[in-house]
Nucleic acid binder design. Structure first.
Lengths: 138, 138
DNA sequence: TATTGTTATACTCTATAACTATA
DNA sequence: TATAGTTATAGAGTATAACAATA
């Protein structure tokens, strides 16, 4: 059965992305979160006081779609808002959020390490640079 | 603004995939198709008589989701079915489908070439192998 | 005038379960 | 018993347009 797509970088990018994302979400499921929740928490942890619009720009998520996203994490008690000025709210992790995120981070770090190990050692140093070149979007 | 994600292979994979996919769909929009339509047509062109279940397995699309997908392309006059046995239908391109697809293919080939050219020449030969290593799903 | 948070909404993609007809 | 095609449906994820309040 001929596969005319499996040598196309764009196609491989899409399939590899979908497969690895599903795998990460599988591992995070036990913690009751998905990759998006975890990545937002990582961004806020690295930038306490960041607004949801700023976090959304960093993650490639639109303002409007950040609203229910942030609200859900807030409801779970993992992050809190603090009014910065009349229109902006700074986000930060709660104590429970920081504790929970530390666990997610070990899952993510282990996953990312395994991902890299799938690539032969002599090519491994090229993975991140190549992906950055392919991601032209910034 | 610190970005704790931009050195993670899995995250870069996802963002690069989303960005390039959007770009390809932008280019195909003028032809009235998207990447999924085009990739199914490429698979059928390379494997005349393939069933929609087989094509779905190759593309990572479930049986149930192939139904409206194939039906839409058939309605547009780009592919046809031929009963193989009592339960299977072989798919093939119509003349109009082959003509249309030839145009899409030039768009795709140009896009894939540009994608590769974003990577410095000395790393370029590692792109496809690395993506295959990362895609563990077969 | 631009930006933040917000609401509402629509559209696509994907996942699941079930059914039938056939191999 | 396994497979192909199908239907229906639910859940994500994403995109757009609009509005009020604020900078």
């Amino acid at each position: 059965m001929a596969d005319p797509l499996s040598s196309l970088p764009g196609y491989l990018l899409r399939r590899a992305s979908a497969a690895t994302l599903a795998e990460l979400n599988q591992r995070l499921m036990g913690e009751g979160v998905n990759h998006a929740d975890a990545s937002l928490m990582l961004v806020i942890h690295a930038n306490p006081g960041i607004t949801q619009s700023e976090a959304g720009r960093m993650l490639g998520i639109q303002r409007a779609n950040m609203v229910p996203f942030v609200a859900r994490l807030e409801t779970r008690g993992w992050l809190q808002r603090e009014q910065v000025d009349g229109r902006s709210q700074g986000l930060s992790l709660t104590g429970a959020g920081a504790t929970a995120m530390a666990k997610w981070r070990t899952v993510i770090d282990a996953f990312e390490a395994e991902l890299l190990e799938r690539v032969p050692a002599e090519l491994r140093c090229h993975v991140v640079p190549i992906l950055r070149y392919l991601w032209n979007d910034r």
